[in-house]
Design a protein around this nucleic acid. Sequence first.
DNA 1: CTAACGATTCGCT
DNA 2: GCGAATCGTTAGT
Length: 201
Amino acid sequence: MPEKLPLSFYGRDDVVQIARDLLGKVLCTNINDVFTSGIIVETEAYNGRTDKACHSHIHGRTKRTEIMFGKPGKAYVYLCYGIHHLFNVVTNGEGLADAVLVRAIEPLSGVPTILKRRSRTKLERSVGGGPGIASQALGISTAHYGTDLLGNLIWIEDHNSLLNQKDIIASPRVGVDYAGEDALLPWRFRIKGNKFTSPAK
DNA sequence: CTAACGATTCGCT
DNA sequence: GCGAATCGTTAGT
C-alpha cells in the first residue's frame, strides 16, 4: 500500500527541495465520498521570507494568507481572478509562510469523475494541466482552505516512483513579473516530457 | 464604504 | 497566438 506523506516531509526548511520531491507523488482527494487522485507533474515553490512573489510577502499576514504562517501540511487554496482555485501545500515551520503550488496533475484514479468535472471526454492536457485546472479536476475548492493533509479528505501519497534528476526541469515562474529579480528564480519544476505539464519554453 | 488588482483560462481570429 | 472575462480580497478614503 502507498504511504501517506508524513508531517516531517512538509516540515523541512527547504521549500525548493520539497517542491522537487513532490514531483511524481500522488495527490488524492475524497470529496463528497468520491475518490480521485493524480500524479503531481508540475510544482512551484514560494518562500515566504525572501521571495517577493509570494502572497505572504506581498500582502503580509492577512486573513487570507494566515494559513501559510501556521503549521505545515495544510492546504492553502487561493481564489484567483474570481474563478480559479489554486491549490498550495503549506511547508516549513510556524511563522515562516512557505508554500508549494501544485500546477499540474496527471489523472490516476477516478478518471471518469475527473473528466466529468472538467467537462471533457478524453485525457488531454486541458484535463489536468494548469493550476486552476488541476484543482478543479480533483474537486478542490476554497471550501478546502486550511484542510489538514494528514487527514482523510485531501492527502498526498508516495508511490515510490523515483524520478531521475535529469527528468526534472527547473524554469522561471510565470505570471509573477511584478516580483522583479525574484521572478527569475528557477523555482518552477516539472517532469520532462509529461503531456500534462505546460508546453516547454 | 469604495476602488483596484490578480500565482489564469477560454474563446475567437 | 492574443485579448477579454470575472469576483473575492486588499488597501485606501
